[in-house]
Amino acid sequence: MPAYSAPLARTRSSPKRLMARRTNVLPGFGLSLGYTLVYLSLIVLIPLSGVFLRTMELSWGEFWQVATSPRVVASYRISFGLSLLAATINAVFGLLLAWSLVRYTFPGKKLVDALVDLPFALPTAVAGIALTALYARNGWLGQWIEGEWGIKVAFGPLGILVALTFIGLPFVVRTVQPILEDIETELEEAAASLGAHRWQTFRHVLLPILTPALLTGFALAFARAVGEYGSVIFIAGNIPLVSEITPLLIITKLEQYEYAGATAIATVMLIISFVLLLTINGLQAWTNRVTGRDR
């Protein structure tokens, strides 16, 4: 598989372009596209547009007042700051885990590989109470971390970091792993035969290939962490200005029937999600270009 030959990738696109002009004999275009568009509009687009239309009922001043009130700004700082930190932790350890899974043989590897996806499959509420049980002062880990060393994890910002690290873990591993698997041994052999050390080979040969995937995984983990709710609220302690995440504020406002406030904060979060979605699309396109996966 010549995974890294850009010229080949380029020539492959021309027959595809020719194919596009060929008349399509397959049936069902109108039906399938029509159904797709109607269903997408009913379930996603129309309800989502409701948030924006509702926000527009607010004046700019009112919107600004809600979206930048001290408690809300503190929650942005907590949500985004800790998500960024969690995604960074996942980028480092996720790369290490993916590397170990692809490059080494060790006992229990199959089990580890399968369990990496646990955060995708385990309901967030279950993850939340399990992590709380572990890191609370009487928990298996908490009795050491908090009891012996005096570092409070559960019911504080560090607890949020633990939960966000948990739910973001598979993203980096699963985006980097296939790229690592596709790398041909010849690349490193060439580098070694030219006198490169192992570290130089990694730094100058492997890392440039891995960087786009690593950033994609990082961005996916970050985007997921920013919106996360279930696993966080049990362990966070939810102290206003200290460990209160933005999604929880939306719920709090809803429960107090402050629809306008909830909608304004939701709008801010939605806009950020859109920006992240576009960033991730761009990063994925970059990954495909670097690794020759765009045929």
Binding site: T36, L40, V44, L45, I46, P47, L48, G50, V51, R54, A223, V226, G227, E228, Y229, G230, P247, L248, I250, I251, L254, Y259, A262, T263, A266, M269, L270, S273, F274, L276, L277, L278, I280, N281
Partner: peptide
């Protein structure tokens, strides 16, 4: 269209619930 189909994954679950409350 592909991007729009992906949209629900990037929306916070709380916002996903909120949109139906608003409708």
């Amino acid at each position: 269209l592909i991007t729009l189909i992906d949209l629900p994954f990037s929306v916070s679950p709380v916002v996903a619930g909120l949109i139906y409350v608003l409708v």
